[in-house]
Design a protein around this nucleic acid. Structure first.
Ligand code: FES
Ligand code: FES
Lengths: 142, 142
DNA sequence: ATAAACTGATGCTATATTAGTATCAGTTTG
DNA sequence: CAAACTGATACTAATATAGCATCAGTTTAT
């Protein structure tokens, strides 16, 4: 069981990179090299983030990607939603007894509760939060 | 994003069924009919549960499956582990900066924390617990 | 003794998701 | 005008999920 898929994972790392170099345009190529991600894959990921107005892009030499959203407001759960969709029950069909009634189904109710918990936790994590923790760690580690 | 896959889901429902009819042998066919699950799929699922000594089987007419584990001790997380493996990071490779060091990687640390939380929650849920909730609900609903 | 209802073992197929690649057109800069 | 970039789009490959089929053997009722 995986909580994060690669595209989510790469997106987060790229966003961290872009947060560290805010105001600059970083090319997909340079991010891919730095973070050792597959270049074309990263490109498709960044195109998604552009659609969602999280980053903007500039074409041509010296072009690249730039963060436009506030990293303090980019929640990890948002990124998960973009690349993995909503956290959802294993689309359980209405069966007898246990699932007689979706509204009252016990199993469903419990899973929903845990899902909310996960969403909530990933909602508390932001790109900026991660960056902060990284820099703290770097200082502390010296 | 799905927290439970079908095999886990079916396994749980079957176990609930077996708990309700404890001491009896229920055939895979009858469980599949009752819960509207694909018969052969359920059979392969039950074979797994037999391997793990959660249910036992009897061959021949009047044979079938019977619960042998204590339903109060069958945690939902155990079933998840059997069919979906351990909850794991999107096997993140050791990258620069963010993942320079797996031990100290911030992203990893946060995800691990949430994973533990999920595991813990699914560890608190047991088959018996679900059955209890169902019967409460049925009484209350009258 | 034999047919029907069952599991054991095993191997297969179908579908969906995840991961990644490739290509061509257009833009910007030196 | 070439090199370094993105936009758009379409494709492939790998893996995981979901499910089906078959044959051998066991038990029970008749
Ligand atoms: S309605 Fe989905 S688990 Fe019951
Ligand atoms: S080591 Fe995996 S997220 Fe960093």
């Amino acid at each position: 069981m995986k909580l994060l898929t690669k595209n989510t994972d790469y997106a987060i790392r790229a966003l961290i990179e872009l947060t560290v170099h805010k105001e600059e345009y970083l090319s997909a190529r340079s991010i891919a090299n730095k973070q050792k991600m597959p270049f074309q894959f990263l490109r498709s990921i960044m195109q998604e983030l552009i659609k969602y107005k999280i980053v903007s892009s500039k074409e041509g030499v010296k072009g690249g990607l730039k963060l436009i959203a506030d990293p303090a407001k980019i929640k990890i759960v948002d990124i998960i939603r973009i690349f993995q969709g909503e956290i959802e029950l294993s689309d359980c069909m209405f069966q007898q007894k246990i699932c007689e009634n979706r509204k009252t189904c016990v199993l469903r109710k419990e899973i929903k509760r845990i899902e909310k918990l996960v969403e909530n936790e990933f909602g508390k994590l932001t790109v900026k939060g991660l960056v902060k923790k990284i820099s703290k760690q770097e200082k502390g580690g010296k």
